[in-house]
Design a protein around this nucleic acid. Structure first.
Length: 409
DNA sequence: TCTGGGGTCCTAGGACCC
DNA sequence: TCTGGGGTCCTAGGACCC
């Protein structure tokens, strides 16, 4: 039995949602109707395009390019800041609406959902249901979406990416040669800027070319990735709609610094601030990390990472920071100008799984200290929740003078 | 005033063990 | 004097997504 899958993709999500928010607050202009982008702050060296209006797109503005480049293409371009708090609200509103159709919804990102409509169609066709959803979102939530209609996730996602905005497209198996194969191979999901040139060298230019390429050849050249791209090009995808929210496998935070820093002590302060944010989120999940990873990016955009597996999983800020600091010191070459500092924890577990349980009531001084530290962390967390994240930080963070901006979760 | 931040998954090489 | 090979764990880096 064929599965019935819909993919819902909000058109220019960040820009549309900002536009609605501005209108609600009395703005006279709808930024969806002018050349506009949502972008980072150039003075903080994070000036890239996160979303663009149709008018900006017509100038040739693309997502993820610099605001500087976008302005060259589009003089008079208006730039607006992002606001993730309101994006989450609109994302949730859409999710609530979609729940009226099926409870098998995978929130693929803040602005994309997969719906498994198998056994939920109530006499309507999948296409009719997709159209109804698009219409209702437009009428009730005042933004538009593209809907992809297919029998697996890959094809639904490819379909929702056809012409935009406010469109519903089908991509059933028999439509693959006509609708998908003529597209440039770069349009295929999971083919990025590194792989596409390699395919071009093999004279593979369209998705159809890729579909007709020998699978074993691709497997030999690209490994698992090669098998996957061949299957995708042929419309094969058996993956399930993951409607049960999965626990995170890792949590990380990184900051691009307003200016390059070549001072180790300053880098350590920043690392501490980032670590506190990461371990706070870790404790909110009631999880424990088994590896610590530190990332540096130098002024030439070269990335360095060092990681270390811990002897036992922990959520303690102190222990994780101790490890992170060692990694930073191992990695940092004296005098190197650093553009970005990041840290993340991986190998997240629900329990500490350490030796305490094996040895029953025997508690060493060390395990008592860990317990003490974790209780202190929890107390600080509660204060942060009560008085706001920015007010409660360790003394050393105060010297940072606002260089680190925390997101509230 | 050129290039974000948060994720997941994969690969390759070295260490180590039997 | 000849100098294995398979398996697993750990680490660094890379590719891709939104």
């Amino acid at each position: 039995m064929k599965r019935q899958i819909l993919h819902i993709d909000v058109n220019n999500a960040f820009l549309s949602w900002t536009a609605i928010d501005m209108l609600k607050k009395g703005s006279k202009i709808d930024i969806r109707e002018i050349p506009a982008v949502i972008g980072g702050d150039e003075t903080k060296r994070s000036g890239i395009v996160l979303a663009k209006s149709m008018k900006a797109k017509e100038c040739g503005v693309v997502t993820a390019e610099t605001i500087y480049q976008a302005r060259q293409k589009c003089p008079g371009l208006k730039v607006f800041p992002s606001n993730f708090k309101i994006y989450r609200e609109y994302s949730n509103k859409m999710y609530e609406l979609l729940l009226q159709y099926t409870d098998k919804i995978e929130r693929f990102s803040i602005d994309e959902c997969f719906l498994d409509m198998t056994n939920y169609l109530k006499g309507k066709t999948l296409l009719e249901t997709g159209k109804e959803i698009g219409k209702r979102i437009k009428e009730e939530l005042e933004f538009t979406v593209n809907v992809g209609v297919a029998h697996n996730k890959l094809l639904a996602k490819m379909a929702s990416d056809f012409t935009k905005p406010d469109k519903v497209h089908t991509l059933f198996e028999e439509e693959i040669p006509q609708k998908m194969w003529p597209l440039p191979v770069s349009e295929l999901f999971m083919l990025g800027k590194r792989t596409v040139p390699k395919l071009h060298n093999m004279q593979i230019r369209t998705i159809g070319d890729l579909a007709k390429t020998n699978k074993e050849l691709l497997a030999k050249k690209f490994g698992k990735h090669g098998v996957m791209m061949w299957e995708y090009a042929n419309g094969i995808d058996n993956s399930e709609v993951k409607y049960i929210k999965e626990k995170p496998k890792g949590i990380g935070n990184s900051v691009t610094l307003p200016q390059d820093i070549s001072n180790l002590e300053k880098l350590e302060e920043i690392l501490l601030a980032i670590t506190e944010q990461v371990t706070y989120r870790l404790r909110k999940y009631n999880m424990y990390a088994s590896t610590v990873n530190v990332q540096l990016r130098n002024k030439d955009f070269k990335d360095f990472t060092h990681q270390k597996k811990l002897t036992s999983p922990t959520s303690s800020t102190k222990i994780i920071y101790q490890e992170a600091k060692i990694l930073l010191n191992q990695m940092y070459i004296k005098g190197m100008p650093i553009r970005l500092v990041g840290m993340r924890v991986d190998g997240l577990k629900d329990t500490k799984q350490d030796q305490i349980s094996l040895f029953d009531n025997i508690q060493t001084k060390e395990t008592k200290d860990i317990k003490k530290q974790e209780n202190l962390d929890k107390t600080i967390d509660k204060l942060k929740e009560k008085y706001g994240y920015n007010l409660i930080t360790r003394a050393t963070n105060l010297e940072l003078d606002g260089t680190i901006e925390f997101k509230k979760h």
